[in-house]
Design a binder for these strands. Structure first.
Lengths: 209, 209
DNA sequence: GGCCATAACTTAGCGCTGTTAAGTTAACGA
DNA sequence: TCGTTAACTTAACAGCGCTAAGTTATGGCC
């Protein structure tokens, strides 16, 4: 909070600086407009350190953003878990997951872009599929669809395929609404609440047996 | 084709240079990876001109990309029109439009990103809604939905709202597949053909009365 | 207590970016 | 023939990500 008087981290305290860099990055990401507006130099300034010091803690800018990404995915996954737990049946679960997903994207557009638009996660090697940040959240949706199909309340379908389609749908809503927002009044953008209602109606009609 | 021996455009022939710049930009956009890989300096080099000369013909880089965008939208709109004309009834029309949209996005990812991911169009002032590039194509979808609702083959719905939802859906499929492609084999990405089939099935089940 | 390995960080700089101010060239109309 | 001006260049600014090399200071070890 007082970068001017920041004291050099002692031996073994490098993690403190690393955390400060991550915090500053997230702060700047939300404050300023998007990922491009956040520069290494600006982050370093905010932390109270020179730009090259960043590279002692992260391989490169993508590596830094990947870490931000990982931290945000923890929050996101938690949100999805709670939405899933609140559900009473598969259809309700799919709807709650969808609504929570769109709400997250529209309320935290900068975070959403880091997670799902910029291919940050793609640039860093991830060993196993399970290690992929966000995989746990996606599995919730796959399970919900599988349960619905198994119980016979959903039309027969490949759960993985159907879940990917549902993901694409809500992902499209988030990115489209965020894009149209910037067009202002030129495009007749519907209220996002009405749009998500429409999407959920169509989704359930499309899924239910 | 021979930038080395390029001769200065004569008076009133500035349009020729302008076109050459647009052509070079599109060429680089497809060849190299994405929008960031195309720089003013590189474009100028390809045209056989110095970087500042670009600014005689375009306000800035966004303005240049907006023009590329406008030219591409002509092609895109044409594609959508043909898809729409081939249709026999509203449901078929919606499906054909959706499939054509996804096919365009997956076959021309660089163009698609310029049109629908980067908010290039948003940065330039567009006077009227009708002048918005791509508006004509979107109207085709709105009309198809309106026709289906009017004929009673679709469930009652606000055509504008439903069309936006359908747009979001196919937009999500394109952007998601393009993103997952880069993740390689880490994420169990379905075949895009199977995914679009699934999406169309759900779409029609969701729309039909 | 003194030494030294090294974690933590800085200084200086490379090559790139978009963009601008100011100067130059050359073609056309009067 | 001359002046206007479209078309273009030269030089430069401020920013970017990133690196090589140098500095500081701290904790463990003899």
């Amino acid at each position: 909070m007082s970068p001017r008087t920041r004291t050099r981290a002692k031996r073994g305290e490098g993690e403190r600086t690393r955390t400060a860099i991550l915090d500053a990055t997230e702060r700047l990401l939300v404050r300023k407009g998007g990922m491009d507006a956040v520069s290494i130099r600006r982050i370093a300034d905010d932390v109270g350190v020179t730009p090259p010091a960043i590279y002692l803690h992260f391989a490169d800018k993508d590596g830094l953003f990947f870490e931000v990404c990982r931290r945000r995915f923890l929050e996101f996954t938690d949100l999805m878990k709670r939405a899933s737990e609140d559900a009473t049946d598969p259809a309700d679960r799919v709807e709650r997951l969808g609504r929570a997903y769109v709400a997250y994207g529209l309320e935290r557009p900068e975070h959403y872009e880091v997670l799902f638009v910029h291919k940050v996660a793609a640039t860093v090697d991830v060993g196993d599929t399970q290690d992929l940040p966000g995989m746990e959240a996606f599995q919730l949706l796959v399970d919900a669809v599988a349960e619905g199909v198994a119980r016979g309340v959903f039309r027969p379908a490949d759960p993985l395929l159907a879940a990917t389609d549902l993901w694409a749908h809500v992902h499209g809503i988030v990115t489209l609404v965020l894009m149209l927002r910037e067009l202002g009044e030129v495009f007749p953008t519907p209220q996002s609440a009405a749009l998500i209602d429409q999407a959920m109606t169509r989704t359930l009609h499309g899924l239910l047996a």
